[in-house]
Amino acid sequence: MMTVTRRRRKPVSEINVVPYIDVMLVLLIIFMVTAPLITQGVVVDLPKAAAEPLDSDSKPPIVASVDKDGQYYLSTHSDPNASLDVVDLAVMVRAELQVSPGRPVVVKGDGAVQYNQVVQLMVLLQRAGVPQVGLMTDNSAGE
């Protein structure tokens, strides 16, 4: 009689990474689709100036915008493309600062808007309790 000797299999000590690659590709596609949807705002023609950007580790700023027609907008509003009157804008900024006191506030003014409109927006923000206001510019002028 012939005896059959069976060899014992050695355990495989490799990690199968194919499922992880599949998950990463799905996440990449999801982020690529949703990233353009996250950036919203009012279209304004920013004045050109070379300026230092905000720190990347700071909280995202509250952006108060004024367009060329003198309409006011707020980035934290439920509909950032809906214009606000001055009272609603002041109340909303005050509420945002009560929730997050250290959050920076910047003014995004269209380059064609009258200087008076930007100053009026800054005064409105100051009365709403904003301790410091920054001005947003388009940094392509320094290039």
Rank of each mutant, 00 (worst) to 15 (best):
Thr3Gln: 12
Thr3Asp: 14
Thr3Lys: 14
Arg8Gln: 15
Lys10Arg: 15
Val12His: 00
Glu14Val: 10
Ile15Phe: 02
Asn16Val: 10
Val17Lys: 04
Val18Gln: 00
Val18Ile: 05
Asp22Ser: 11
Val23Tyr: 13
Met24Tyr: 11
Leu25Thr: 14
Val26Trp: 10
Leu28Ser: 15
Ile30Gln: 03
Ile30Trp: 04
Ile30Glu: 02
Phe31His: 07
Phe31Gly: 08
Val33Glu: 00
Pro36Ile: 09
Ile38Asn: 07
Gln40Pro: 01
Gly41Gln: 01
Val42Thr: 03
Val43Asp: 15
Lys48Thr: 05
Ala50Thr: 09
Ala51Ser: 13
Glu52Asp: 14
Leu54Tyr: 08
Ser56Gln: 15
Ser58Leu: 14
Ser58Val: 15
Pro61Trp: 06
Ile62Glu: 04
Gln71Pro: 04
Tyr72Gly: 10
Tyr72Ala: 13
Leu74Cys: 04
Thr76Ala: 09
His77Phe: 09
Ser78Leu: 14
Asp79Arg: 06
Asp79Thr: 07
Pro80Ile: 01
Ser83Trp: 07
Leu84Ala: 06
Leu84Asp: 04
Val87Met: 02
Val87Cys: 01
Val91Asn: 12
Met92His: 03
Met92Glu: 07
Arg94Asn: 15
Glu96Phe: 02
Leu97Asp: 07
Leu97Lys: 12
Leu97Glu: 07
Val99His: 07
Ser100Leu: 06
Pro101Tyr: 04
Pro104Asn: 01
Val105Gly: 09
Lys108Cys: 06
Lys108Ile: 01
Asp110Ser: 05
Gly111Gln: 15
Asn116Val: 07
Val119Ala: 13
Gln120Tyr: 01
Leu121Glu: 01
Leu121Gly: 06
Leu121His: 08
Val123Ser: 05
Val123Arg: 02
Leu124Glu: 00
Leu125Trp: 11
Leu125Ala: 11
Gln126Ser: 14
Ala128Thr: 11
Gln132Thr: 09
Met136His: 03
Thr137Pro: 02
Asn139Gln: 01
Ser140Asn: 13
Glu143Ile: 02
